[in-house]
Amino acid sequence: MVVAPEPAAPAAAVPPPAPVAPALSREELMAQYVDKVRRLIRSRMVYKGKQGNPEVLIEVSLQPDMRIKTVKVVKASGNKAFDQAVKRAIEKAGSYPALPEGLDFSIFMTHKIKYRLHDLL
């Protein structure tokens, strides 16, 4: 007796590969990371003033694990309360977010951040 072979199961549909997002340039990575740091500072800042748009330049030194080592005002805004609020917010953060692949710690080991009251809402 000859037995007929069973019909083959239909081939499973294989979905097309998901589109791969183009790799970000170093500049785009840097811009995204700096924005993340500024949002971190903003989330910890306590400052009631709304008048004007004071700008302070802060120097931050980091440890290799991204913990904040030192924070100092390099160029005051002329509004001491604002400057101190920014400095305290950075100190309160305790550390920066982990660096994304493609950015080197040496860039951030000691760096300056220009921080404006209303530009970062």
Rank of each mutant, 00 (worst) to 15 (best):
D119Y: 05
P5R: 11
S77F: 04
R39H: 08
G94P: 05
Q51S: 13
A93W: 03
V46E: 15
Y33D: 00
L121K: 15
K48E: 14
N79Q: 04
D104I: 01
A11W: 00
A13V: 11
V74H: 03
S61M: 05
E6T: 14
E91N: 13
V20I: 13
F105E: 10
K114C: 09
G78A: 13
D119E: 01
R39W: 02
K75G: 00
A89V: 06
E91F: 15
V14L: 08
G78R: 11
S61Y: 01
D35S: 14
Y96H: 09
P5E: 10
P97S: 11
I107T: 13
N53P: 02
L99V: 11
K69C: 04
V37C: 12
A18Q: 07
A4N: 06
P10Q: 12
F105H: 11
L103S: 07
N79R: 03
P64K: 12
P5A: 08
A81F: 06
A11H: 00
P19D: 07
A8H: 09
M1E: 13
A81T: 02
A31F: 15
L117Y: 01
D83W: 00
G94L: 04
A85K: 00
A4K: 06
N53F: 02
K75M: 08
A23M: 10
V86P: 00
A4Y: 05
I68M: 05
D104P: 01
N79Y: 04
V86F: 02
E91Y: 15
I41Q: 00
H118I: 13
P16C: 06
S95R: 12
A85T: 03
R88C: 05
A81M: 11
K92V: 14
E91K: 06
A98Y: 06
G49H: 11
R116N: 10
I41N: 02
P7L: 12
F105S: 08
Q51N: 10
D35F: 12
P19G: 03
E101G: 02
V20K: 10
V37A: 09
V3K: 11
V71T: 03
Q63D: 07
F108C: 06
G52A: 04
A23S: 08
T70G: 00
R26C: 06
R38S: 11
L120Q: 13
A23K: 09
F82C: 03
